[in-house]
């Protein structure tokens, strides 16, 4: 293992911010796979998962195939994490909306460029991500559609052994994400979403580390036995059935969790008045299927998607 500094930024009154990378395998080998962890200051689980991956790859370093190189970047934005700020603390910009970056541009563009110049030439790219909505997911692989390369990636995505592969259509704003730009630069890019974001989920981290190693084994980067896995279900994000608070805000009292199988008509949650506890709205499953996403915040506003269900096939 080689620890390297991929990018350094000087700021007032703090030690320089470093983006640290860990390299495994042949130093002059093919840039096989780059794995990027947290980019936002609240992505605790993503950082932890990468730290565990670094630990595991140290144990498995002899199994990296000759001529291959792996790079792991656990934390792109330690400055924000250290001050409990989700986005870049000075101007609240999101580094994951500034790719491919620009070395003469704004601060977050420079950070993005610093990272992207280190990871853009890898054949495979994996990012551990969080969504803007607070909540929990069924662990899955997400592909952002960016032309032919996404079809190619789709054929590789079952290598993770995760139960779902979700394809999403990018908005114009999403074209500034790492995932999208990796693909523009011909990297097969995969975003991994785990169960949680803001707290450490040990079992979830172990699952994701195993998924990444399994994927690396299927791509001939790691010499490891590939465990059996049920082929994933591939779904379009737009095909997930949303359940929203249509009428009311209040306390969200959930009766279903991410991963649960629910029947059509089943009560998923109640919206309870915050002052007198009467039930203002009942959220029911419009279809039978697996709860793919559930909101976990105790309070909820009107017009908030609280569940997404992968309907039974």
């Amino acid at each position: 293992m080689r620890r390297t500094t991929l990018f350094t930024l000087k700021t007032p009154y703090r030690e320089p911010m470093e983006i640290v990378g860990f390299e495994f395998g042949d130093p002059d080998g093919e840039e096989a796979c780059a794995i990027v962890g947290s980019m936002r200051g609240n992505e605790v689980q993503q950082t932890y998962t990468c730290a565990r991956l670094v630990q595991q790859l140290r144990l498995d370093e002899a199994k990296v195939m000759p001529g291959k190189r792996i790079l792991v970047v656990p934390s792109v934005n330690p400055f924000s994490m250290n001050v409990s700020s989700r986005f870049w603390a000075l101007d609240h910009t999101d580094i994951n909306r500034t790719f491919p970056g620009y070395d003469k541009g704004e601060t977050t563009q420079r950070i993005a460029e610093g990272l992207f110049s280190a990871v853009s030439s890898f054949s495979l790219g994996i990012q551990l991500c969080s969504l803007y909505m607070p909540g929990e997911f069924v662990p899955h692989v997400r592909l952002t559609r960016a032309g032919e390369i996404t079809k190619e990636s789709l054929a590789l995505a079952d290598g993770f052994g995760l139960p779902y592969v979700v394809i999403n259509e990018p908005t114009p704003f999403d074209t500034t994400m790492l995932n999208y730009n990796w693909q523009v630069w011909s990297t097969n890019a995969f975003s991994l979403y785990g169960h949680t974001t803001e707290h450490v989920d040990e079992a979830g981290a172990v699952l994701m580390v195993a998924a990444i190693e399994r994927f690396l084994a299927t791509r001939g980067v790691l010499r490891l036995p590939v465990s059996d896995a049920v082929p994933p279900r591939t779904i379009e994000e737009a095909g997930l059935v949303a359940v929203r608070t249509e009428k009311a805000g209040g306390f969200l009292m959930r009766h279903a969790e991410a991963g649960d199988h629910v029947e059509a008509g089943q009560v998923l949650a109640e919206v309870v008045d915050a002052l007198d506890a009467h039930v203002k709205e009942t959220l029911r499953a419009p279809v039978s299927g697996q709860v793919f996403f559930c909101r976990t915040e105790p309070l909820v506003e009107q017009h908030i998607i609280c569940f997404r269900i992968a309907a039974d096939e």
Partner: peptide, 11 residues
């Protein structure tokens, strides 16, 4: 207009 969690609307 949308109802906020505690006795208020966003307008």
């Amino acid at each position: 207009s949308a109802e906020l969690p505690v006795n208020e609307h966003l307008l």
